[in-house]
């Protein structure tokens, strides 16, 4: 079964590597992974879609929590949540087919964001299944190129998946700044 897990992590060098390495090492299968900033400075949000039984997801959550840079983990699979993906699809489309394709994508509330005499780029923000359906419908015209983001999710209602704890200033500064490469021009060349 597919699970959607949200992890709030410290935005520090290497954190993506730590998470990816953990999934590889423990043999958890990632379907998709989306990373971005959040309302909180210094906190990134990872939305991970993975395939596995409930017991495996319990292990995933606990193993994620063992990473020092992971602050909060939440399995939103069984929650009432808004889940979205974005797709850009470049589809073959001669001028005479254009009206037909535009009609079709209207049903999915997708948009055409680029047009040439023989192609269209179609953009759709929707749940994964809607995207799959659009792709199936566009396939007969000839999909020349497609890119999809990973899924992102947010629980409906007043409850939030957020980090509520503020750290003391010195800790916060350290966590925001340390480990990053200073500007190259400030660095002198040091021989071996």
């Amino acid at each position: 079964m597919k699970h959607t897990v949200v992890a709030l992590v410290e935005d520090r060098p290497g954190v993506l590597n730590r998470v990816a390495s953990l999934f590889r090492r423990r043999g958890f299968n990632i379907d998709s992974l989306a990373v971005g900033t959040t309302e909180e400075q210094g906190i990134s949000r990872m939305t991970i879609v993975l395939d596995g039984a409930d017991g495996i997801v319990e292990q995933v959550e606990k193993q994620l929590y063992k990473l020092i840079d992971v602050v909060k983990v939440s399995d939103v699979t069984h929650e009432e949540a808004v889940t979205r993906e974005l797709a850009l699809i470049k589809v073959r489309c001669m001028s005479e087919q254009r009206a037909e394709v535009l009609d079709l994508i209207q049903i999915f509330r997708a948009q055409a964001v680029d047009v040439t005499p023989n192609s269209l780029i179609i953009q759709l923000v929707a749940g994964g299944e809607t995207l799959d359906a659009l792709v199936d419908n566009l396939r007969p015209y000839g999909i020349r190129e497609m890119v999809r983001t990973g899924r992102i999710a947010m629980v409906r209602g007043n409850r939030t998946t957020a980090v509520h704890e503020q750290e003391p200033e010195s800790a916060q500064r350290f966590h925001l700044e340390s480990g990053r490469r200073p500007e190259e021009e400030h660095l002198q060349y040091v021989s071996k």
Partner: peptide, 30 residues
């Protein structure tokens, strides 16, 4: 040295990358 990191200099190894799965935590101090 920081200027040589990632440039495959003499005796460079990506040791924080190597130790990541075998430590409780690691740091590269810049």
């Amino acid at each position: 040295g920081r200027n040589l990191l990632g440039k495959d200099g003499f005796q460079e190894a990506d040791i924080t990358g190597i130790t990541m799965p075998i430590v409780k935590h690691n740091y590269l101090v810049m």
